[in-house]
């Protein structure tokens, strides 16, 4: 690979991102779109600067509910994934229900959660949990179910118990699936928490955007969107790095 091509590959994410903002800015200004419909990104950034205090307060709230929901999803997802992944019977028994739960739009659950828990932090955490739980379960279960049958025979002949096979082969084998699911799950968790905040909360980026749009402060809405996107990218990057660090072997074969 030539050095030019290498540099291009390295900086391509930055180039594309900057290009997108430049294009957006150009379209918004040249077409003279009113800023209460589509503000140019510079105005969104200005609004972000102006409301830096409230934005960071609400962003922290969103980050908190997202990570709390995501954390629960990881713990329970791992648990349920290992349980149904290591038993054919349970896998068969629970799979339809899991698909059913996953198919329900989470925004439809928020009113229920409000009845049960009131508005605010708790429904946001639960929505984030519900939306990010499924990919973790399915991936862990898949990882466990893809043990090669020959290897299982080799180990069973040696007298390996189900638990030994699970510990020595099943769980390491499912780790790449697990870490791959974390990247997906954490971004979904943001979707969940923001949805809930938009519908039923008085804190968080979702709430901030809701109230900003009620006051036609569209630049602030966009500032909120950019902040969510940035947090999503950051979290994704953290888990992608973690994935590479822990299961690098899975990327080389």
């Amino acid at each position: 690979m030539s050095p030019l091509r290498k540099n291009l590959e390295r900086f391509s994410p930055v180039i594309v991102t900057v290009a997108m903002f430049v294009a957006w800015e150009a379209v918004a200004r040249l077409a003279k779109i009113p800023s209460y419909i589509l503000p140019p990104p510079s105005e969104a950034v200005m609004a972000g600067y102006e409301f830096a205090g409230p934005i960071s307060k609400h962003a922290l709230q969103t980050l908190y509910t997202t990570l709390a929901g995501f954390g629960l999803a990881v713990v329970f997802g791992l648990l349920v994934g290992v349980i149904i992944g290591s038993s054919k019977l349970l896998y068969r028994a629970f799979y339809p229900i899991l698909i059913g739960f996953n198919s329900v739009p989470k925004v439809a659950l928020v009113p229920l959660l409000v009845i049960w828990f009131g508005i605010g932090t708790v429904p946001a955490i639960i929505t984030a949990f519900l939306i990010s739980f499924f990919p973790v379960v399915v991936n862990v279960a898949t990882g466990l179910a893809t043990i090669e049958p020959e290897l299982e025979d080799v180990l069973r002949v040696l007298g390996a118990s189900k638990l030994t096979i699970l510990l020595k082969v099943g769980i390491p084998n499912s780790l790449p699936y697990f870490f791959a699911s974390l990247k997906i799950a954490v971004t979904l968790a943001f979707v969940g928490s923001v949805i809930s905040e938009t519908v039923a909360s008085n804190a968080g980026i979702g709430y901030l955007m809701m109230s900003a749009s009620a006051r036609f402060n569209v630049p602030l809405v966009f500032a909120g969107l950019i902040v969510i996107a940035a947090m999503g990218i950051g979290m994704y990057a953290i888990f992608a790095t973690l994935e590479k660090r822990t299961t690098g072997w899975a990327f080389r074969s």
Partner: peptide
């Protein structure tokens, strides 16, 4: 031992 070597990749 089988045809598929089933070594653990990690």
């Amino acid at each position: 031992a089988f045809q598929n070597p089933t070594l653990l990749p990690w």
